[in-house]
Design a protein around this nucleic acid. Structure first.
Length: 275
DNA sequence: ACCCAGGGGCAAG
DNA sequence: CTTGCCCATGGG
């Protein structure tokens, strides 16, 4: 397979793929195999460049958000020592641009699951309900229509546990148009969040993941157990909604980026801010 | 064996 | 407003 070079300064492929925002890429050979939507790609990083499947250069550039202005973004980060440690140790992580339904459904299954578990559920769902992609052993993420017609028992068979009825119900809402994921793109962030939270099994945390990872709302802050601990160590208090507004007020227009670096740093280093 | 995980929803205080 | 509890599963 011929590969083509793509410039990718200030980007770390492995860290980005392992930072808890996308769960289906597999390490293979000297790079990673994955799907962008239903299009197969192989990506390898070498120095400041990516080598990608010929014809996928533009799709890769968009998916991995290689156009994000990282100097400007880092320039808005707060200057406390913990955030500086996070930037130093997580450098190169991007907030990528994921397909909307795939992102929503994946994070719906993420409730109270570790990253490795989310990966295995994603794989099982793709294998059982996803379309085969020619020229690869990978399968596309199942459509909402496909998951709406699955039985709860089949979904439990993919390891979903109590998340099974939520995924089925939300798939039905999307498949029959009760919520239109494309229409959310035109809405204000807060209105889109309220709309997403109507879906069964979707609360503020999952809705913010979808807004951040699929709708380019780079100020959206998903508060999970890790970020909750980090923010409380920074003396934030109150319920999830209050931790979000604390973050946006303190971290600014790229609060979602700050959050992603703090999240990954806390997980990898197993440390919290001092005070 | 025991603990916890990129939560949500609902009841009770 | 807050806290407590349940939901199900797998990896450390």
């Amino acid at each position: 397979m011929t590969l083509c070079a793509v410039e990718a300064a200030e980007f770390d492929l492995r860290r980005t793929l392992e930072s808890g925002q996308v769960f289906h890429w597999v390490e293979r050979g000297d790079g990673f195999d994955g799907l962008i939507g239903s299009r197969p790609v192989h990506v390898r990083q070498e120095d400041g460049r990516l080598f990608v499947t010929a014809g996928m250069e533009d799709a890769v550039t968009h998916y991995f958000a290689l156009d994000h202005p990282m100097d400007e973004i880092f320039g808005t980060f707060p200057h406390d020592s913990y955030t500086r440690e996070a930037v130093a140790s997580c450098r190169g992580i991007r907030i990528i641009r994921q397909p909307k339904w795939e992102c929503l459904a994946t994070f719906l299954t993420s409730a109270m699951k570790q990253v490795s578990h989310i990966r295995s559920m994603s794989r099982a769902l793709r294998m059982r309900f996803g379309e085969a992609v020619e020229g690869t052993d990978l399968r596309a993420y199942p459509t909402a229509a496909a998951l709406a017609t699955a039985t709860e028992a089949q979904l439990r068979g993919c390891g979903l546990g109590f998340r099974a009825p939520n995924l089925k119900a939300t798939a039905e809402w999307i498949a029959d148009g009760r919520v239109d994921l494309e229409a959310l793109s035109e809405m204000e962030t807060e209105a889109a969040l309220v709309e997403l939270c109507r879906l069964p099994g979707v609360g503020r945390k999952i809705a913010n993941c979808v807004l951040l990872f699929a709708y380019e709302r780079l100020d959206a802050v998903p508060v999970d157990v890790w970020i909750g601990r980090v923010l409380r160590a920074m003396r934030a208090t109150g319920p999830v909604a209050e931790l979000e507004s604390y973050s946006r007020a303190r971290f600014g227009p790229y609060a979602g980026y700050v959050q992603q670096y703090l999240f990954h740093h806390a997980r990898v280093s197993k440390t919290l801010p001092k005070a």
